[in-house]
Simulated assay, not measured.
Amino acid sequence: MSISRSLVLTLAGNRVVTSFVSKYGMKLGASRFVAGESLEEAVRFVSEINKEGLIVTLDHLGESVYTKEEAIAATDESVRIFEAIAESGVNSNVSVKLTQLGLDIDPEFCFENMDRIAAKAKECNNFVRIDMEDTPRLEVTIDIFNRLLAKYGKAHIGLVIQSYLYRAVDDVAKLGENQVNLRIVKGAYKEPAAVAFPEKSEVDDNYVRLVQNHLLSGCYTAIATHDETIIHILKKWIKENHIDDNLYEFQMLYGVRNGLQRDLVKEGYKVRVYTPYGKDWYPYFTRRIAERPANALFILKNFFKN
């Protein structure tokens, strides 16, 4: 049985599918990718995974909000994450999406919310990364990030760049001028061929190029991929080019390639696990299925076991 990425993303927007998966998904297998629905559950998970030598990025799930009250609540939760990390002593930083903070309501309102989060990150001597969303929101995301970077510095705030976009090389070069801490990903949104590479091989080649360029600029780089071929290429290149181990880390998603995560730790590499939690997990979950449609079969198998 073959399930295409495009089909998964199309079905994800279907109301019937959305209702069914939202009701039964955690039971059927979404918990494989989401570390619980509460912050308390997530912190307990971080504590356990830290014992294995893995570090974490916590992300309270949620995307576009429709009221300022929702955006403020999401901001409050991100602030609470930093407080919980500080209180528990776990090794974790935080990731946020600007649409969850009101970007589509009012960019300046979103900036004010993000400013609160960045201030808390600095207060706690921690770090927040702004996730990148689809291309209509890309420019405003970079603008907000640059304003916060000037205020809080690269030690406390970073950004994500997606290698499937043609413009990514230029974006990385420009951000590298300010020594920005970047998380390089392939990209999981459905984008037109006018702005994104249509072929996987092109996305992969651009991914390697972006990581290499950023590291050669002396910038901290989060290598966020589960692709063993790319990991092998970059490990070899890093060694051959004598890249300082303090300049990079490997990042993977909770529930994806767990064995590989631990193998890299055993080899002495720094590995961070991107760990989402929260009740609004459906959009994130469908993108994980879209990235690897075979995961849909995992869900179906669990359904028929019940």
Rank of each mutant, 00 (worst) to 15 (best):
L7I: 02
V8L: 12
A12Y: 14
N14H: 14
T18L: 15
T18R: 15
S19Y: 03
S22P: 14
G25E: 15
G25S: 15
K27V: 13
A30M: 14
F33Y: 15
E37W: 09
E40A: 12
E41F: 10
V43D: 11
V43E: 07
V43I: 14
V46P: 00
N50G: 06
K51T: 03
E52S: 02
E52I: 03
I55N: 11
L61K: 07
E63T: 03
V65N: 05
Y66P: 00
T75S: 07
T75Q: 10
E77C: 08
S78K: 13
I81P: 09
A84L: 03
E87Q: 15
G89Y: 09
G89N: 11
S92I: 08
V96N: 07
K97Y: 01
L98M: 09
Q100P: 04
G102C: 04
D106S: 01
D115C: 08
D115N: 13
D115G: 09
I117Y: 11
A119V: 08
E123V: 03
N125C: 08
N125T: 05
N125W: 03
F127K: 04
V128E: 03
D134F: 15
E139W: 15
T141D: 03
I142L: 11
N146Q: 10
N146F: 06
N146M: 01
L148D: 00
L148A: 02
A150P: 01
A150F: 09
A150C: 04
A150N: 08
A155D: 13
H156F: 03
G158D: 06
I161C: 13
I161W: 10
A173H: 15
L175H: 05
L175F: 08
V180A: 02
V185C: 05
K186W: 02
K190R: 14
A194S: 13
A196I: 01
A196W: 03
A196S: 01
F197I: 10
K200D: 01
E202P: 00
V203M: 14
L210T: 11
L210S: 13
V211R: 12
H214R: 08
L215W: 01
G218A: 00
C219V: 05
Y220S: 06
T221D: 10
T221H: 11
T225L: 13
H226C: 11
D227R: 10
E228D: 11
E228P: 00
H232C: 07
I233W: 09
I233C: 06
L234S: 05
E240P: 05
E240C: 02
N246I: 10
L247Y: 05
L247A: 07
L247I: 03
F250R: 07
M252I: 00
M252Q: 00
Y254T: 04
R257V: 01
R257I: 02
R257W: 09
G259M: 05
L260M: 15
L260E: 13
Q261F: 06
R262D: 02
K270Q: 05
T275I: 06
K279A: 10
K279M: 12
Y282Q: 08
P283T: 13
F285Y: 14
R288V: 09
R288T: 05
A290H: 04
P293V: 06
A294M: 02
N295D: 08
A296G: 04
